[in-house]
Every structure is written in C-alpha cells, then in structure tokens.
Amino acid sequence: MLKFAIVLAFGCIGTALLLNFWRLLRGPGPTDRILALDTMYVNTTALLVLLGLHLDRDIYFEAALLIALMGFVGTVALCKYLLRGDIIE
C-alpha cells in the first residue's frame, strides 16, 4: 500500500513540476516566473524526499535539504533584484 502511495505521489508531484515549468516559460511577468521557479524548488525537494523513501537511502534527504536551501537563497536574491535593481547594497 505504501509503494502505491509513493508512486501516486511521484505522479502528482511530477505533473505539478511540469506545470510549473510551463508557467516558468510562459509566465506573463517576472514575478510569475520567480514564483514558478520557487515552486519548482519545493517540488524538486518533495521528489527527492519521495525518492529517498522509495529507495530507503539517506543521501537523498541531504540533497533535498541542500536544494531547499539554495532555492530559498535564490528566490530571495531574485526578488531583491526585482525590487531594487541590485542584490548587494
């Protein structure tokens, strides 16, 4: 039963990742594209956690943590660039 739930979650999150990628490419504005990129980081983190559960490996959880951290820093930098035009003051 758990294997079926993990496979179903892979499908749902994979579909969400593809839809976010479509929004990243076709977004009407830069804020929509940044939001799609941030959501893609979250979906990638979720996929890595699911893969770690499926394969019973701990290394995927560490990779998910690093991607989440890099995604947060990247989103903050892009938002600051959009608001002020400069990242470092």
Rank of each mutant, 00 (worst) to 15 (best):
L78P: 00
L48Y: 09
V49N: 09
F61R: 07
C12P: 00
L69Q: 01
W22V: 12
T31Q: 02
Y41G: 14
A77M: 06
L83Y: 06
T45Y: 06
L50G: 04
L35H: 04
I88D: 07
L47A: 09
P30R: 05
V73T: 10
A5S: 08
E89N: 08
R57D: 13
L17K: 02
I88H: 04
T31N: 00
D56T: 11
V76H: 06
T44Q: 11
N43I: 02
A46Y: 06
T15S: 06
T15Q: 05
L18S: 06
L82H: 02
G74A: 12
G29I: 00
G52V: 13
T15L: 15
Y41S: 10
A5R: 07
V76R: 12
R23N: 07
A77R: 04
L65R: 09
L48G: 05
F10Q: 03
R57K: 14
G14M: 04
L51G: 12
L66P: 03
V76F: 10
L19H: 01
A63F: 11
V73Q: 05
G11T: 11
T45S: 13
A68W: 09
I34V: 15
G85N: 04
P30C: 06
L55C: 04
V49H: 05
P28E: 14
F4T: 10
A9N: 09
G85E: 03
A16K: 03
D56K: 15
A63L: 15
D58G: 10
A64W: 07
W22F: 12
L48M: 15
Y81L: 14
D38V: 01
V7C: 05
V49R: 06
L2R: 04
G11P: 02
A16Q: 05
L17Y: 11
D58N: 05
Y81W: 08
Y60A: 15
L82A: 09
Y60G: 08
G71C: 10
K80G: 11
R57L: 14
A64G: 05
L2T: 02
W22A: 15
M40P: 00
L83N: 05
V76G: 05
A63Q: 02
L24A: 08
G85D: 00
A64D: 08
T45V: 13
D32L: 04
T31G: 02
V73N: 02
K3T: 10
A77K: 00
G85R: 01
C12I: 15
D32N: 07
T45H: 00
P30W: 00
D58A: 15
T45A: 14
L69N: 03
F61I: 11
R84C: 02
G14N: 01
L24I: 03
E89S: 13
L65E: 03
E62Y: 14
L48S: 00
L83W: 07
L35A: 14
F4N: 07
R57Y: 13
L2D: 04
V7Q: 08
L78D: 00
G11C: 14
L24Y: 03
T75S: 15
L18M: 12
A77E: 02
K80E: 08
I6R: 04
L2H: 01
G71A: 11
A46L: 15
